[in-house]
Amino acid sequence: MGSVCTPVSVVTTFSQGRPHGTTVSAFSALSLEPPMVLVALDRNSTLLSLLQQKRRFGLNVLGADQGELAIRFAGKGADKFAGVPWQVDTGLPRLQGVTGWLACEVTRFVDGGDHLVVMGRVVAASSRDGAPLTYHRREFGTHAVLEERSA
């Protein structure tokens, strides 16, 4: 699956008044009506256990210049948000400068082998111009538009 290019996002939530988050590359749009997305989280993920309790999450779609954030939130640690600009949006932690933002309510957890697929109904969304951060063959990159071919 390393040869499949995927978007890079940080899933966030609050617990006991503190923000929590983790990097995911298994994220996809699921439905337009109602608007839904899915993310896959490792069964041993601390964030997954928080989502099972809180049933709400933010999805921060990272921009091409945010590789350091992806690495930071992919690691283990008590306070991944230390020194990271963020704000509360729709009651969830939102990282500043992201190209896309979704606030979601968990609708279902589905078995996915060593992961659980978290389905979420989108309750708020916004985006800004900017190239997305992608992950391909264990490296970060971005999308490039192909030149138009002449007929």
Rank of each mutant, 00 (worst) to 15 (best):
M1F: 10
G2Q: 07
S3R: 12
V4A: 14
T6A: 14
T6R: 11
T6D: 11
T6W: 05
T6M: 11
V8C: 10
V10S: 06
V11L: 13
V11K: 07
T12Y: 07
S15L: 14
Q16D: 15
P19R: 06
G21A: 01
T22R: 01
T23R: 00
V24A: 02
V24Q: 03
A26S: 14
A26G: 04
S28M: 10
A29Y: 00
L30W: 03
L32K: 05
L32I: 04
P34K: 00
V39H: 01
A40C: 14
L41V: 07
N44T: 15
N44Q: 13
S45D: 01
T46R: 15
T46K: 13
L47M: 08
L48I: 05
S49I: 04
S49F: 08
R55L: 12
R55G: 03
R55V: 06
F57T: 01
F57D: 05
L59A: 02
N60P: 03
N60H: 06
V61I: 09
A64V: 06
Q66Y: 02
Q66R: 02
G67Y: 02
G67V: 08
E68F: 03
L69S: 00
L69K: 02
A70S: 11
A70K: 03
A70P: 02
R72W: 05
A74P: 01
G75L: 08
A78C: 11
D79M: 04
A82P: 05
G83K: 03
G83A: 10
V84N: 03
P85S: 07
V88N: 15
D89H: 15
T90W: 05
T90V: 14
G91Y: 03
G91I: 04
L92S: 07
R94V: 03
R94M: 10
R94I: 08
G97L: 05
T99K: 10
W101A: 12
L102S: 06
L102Y: 00
E105H: 12
R108P: 09
D111A: 12
G113S: 05
G113Y: 00
H115Y: 11
V118H: 06
V118M: 00
M119D: 09
G120A: 09
R121I: 09
V123N: 07
V123C: 12
A125S: 13
S126K: 13
S126D: 11
R128G: 13
D129W: 08
A131P: 08
P132C: 12
T134W: 01
H136F: 12
R137D: 14
R138M: 09
E139Q: 15
G141Q: 04
H143P: 11
